[in-house]
């Protein structure tokens, strides 16, 4: 097996600059993608796809820092701007033009809130980027791969969907799997939040009758019906919330949560 695999050395912007090169895209990993054990697997899957199709990319590595999104949504505009202005200095120093990220919160913040502070980039969420790779034929999943016919429901991230009107890209990516895609009743513009947005991820919920992720998980489980199924997400926070929800319902044996990049990487046989 070993001889069929090659070790990836993920290039940083500093490496690129030292070699006098400029990448096609900067992959903005985000805090969850860097530190959260579950989401690191998504980061790795996405890099495997980039390596596989031969996109010239780089990451910031240890020079990356929080975009400031959780601070801003929690009302700490000062801390947000501190983070944003420092990040923009780094990005501009490397002359970054195009950014791809697997986190809708990073995506929204850099795309919509950095321009006012001097950061102007073309920002693409990985769902849109994967959709482009599929449309261009650079990712072609032969016969749908291992998820063919599998029941999958996509949970819309608020910061991808309502916040930025991206509903179709992740669904088109999933369509490449030739799976049995089922929609929850509350989907697209009417999608129900996982409960993590607006910095809720970092605090206990206010008292209520139920947690939001349980409400959403119940809907997803009902949509998937009996038997095995997959809840597909495109956001690190949604992934955590849905995972917790499925565990709470004792369904982790039957229902798996995957990011769309993981599904593509697996279907392409890149993760073996």
């Amino acid at each position: 097996m070993e001889e069929n695999k090659r070790l990836v050395k993920v290039p940083t912007m500093a490496d690129m600059m030292a070699n006098g090169e400029e990448p096609e895209i900067l992959f903005w990993v985000g805090c969850a993608g860097s530190f959260d054990d579950r989401y690191k697997r998504v980061t790795r899957a996405f890099v495997q796809i980039l390596e596989h199709v031969g996109v010239k990319y780089a990451v910031l590595g240890t020079e990356e820092s929080c975009t400031g999104d959780p601070a801003k949504r929690a009302g700490n505009e000062f801390l947000f701007q501190m983070q944003a202005i420092t990040n923009i200095e780094v990005l501009n120093a490397y002359n970054v033009k195009k950014i791809v990220t697997a986190c809708p919160h990073c995506f929204n913040t850099i795309k919509n809130e950095y321009p006012n502070l001097g950061g102007n980039y073309e920002v693409i969420h990985h769902s849109t980027f994967l959709q482009q790779l599929i449309n261009e034929g650079r990712v072609k999943i032969q016969g749908g791969g291992e998820f063919k016919g599998k029941r999958i429901t996509f949970h819309d991230s608020c910061y991808l969907g309502r916040a930025n009107d991206i509903y179709e890209a992740p669904r088109e990516v999933l369509a490449a799997l030739d799976a049995d895609l089922v929609e929850m009743k509350r989907s697209r513009a009417n999608g129900l939040c996982c409960g993590a947005g607006g910095a809720q991820m970092f605090k206990e919920p206010e008292p209520g009758t139920k947690d939001v992720n349980i409400e959403r998980t119940e809907e997803a489980l009902a949509t998937l019906g009996a038997g095995n199924g997959i809840i597909a997400t495109a956001c690190p926070f949604c992934m955590v919330m849905m995972n917790d929800g499925v565990k709470n319902k004792d369904q982790e044996e039957n229902v798996k949560i995957f990011d769309i990049a993981e599904l593509i990487a697996q279907a392409e046989g890149l993760t073996k």
């Binding site: 069929n4 695999k5 090659r6 993920v10 940083t12 495997q48 590595g61 990356e64 046989g269």
Partner: peptide, 23 residues
């Protein structure tokens, strides 16, 4: 730490270790 969790910023790039793709 430059992250909402208490992780060391020097560990930010650790995810890239031992990553393989099919040749």
């Amino acid at each position: 730490n430059g992250a909402p969790w208490a992780f060391s910023p020097s560990d930010r790039f650790n995810w890239a270790e031992d990553l393989y793709v099919p040749s």
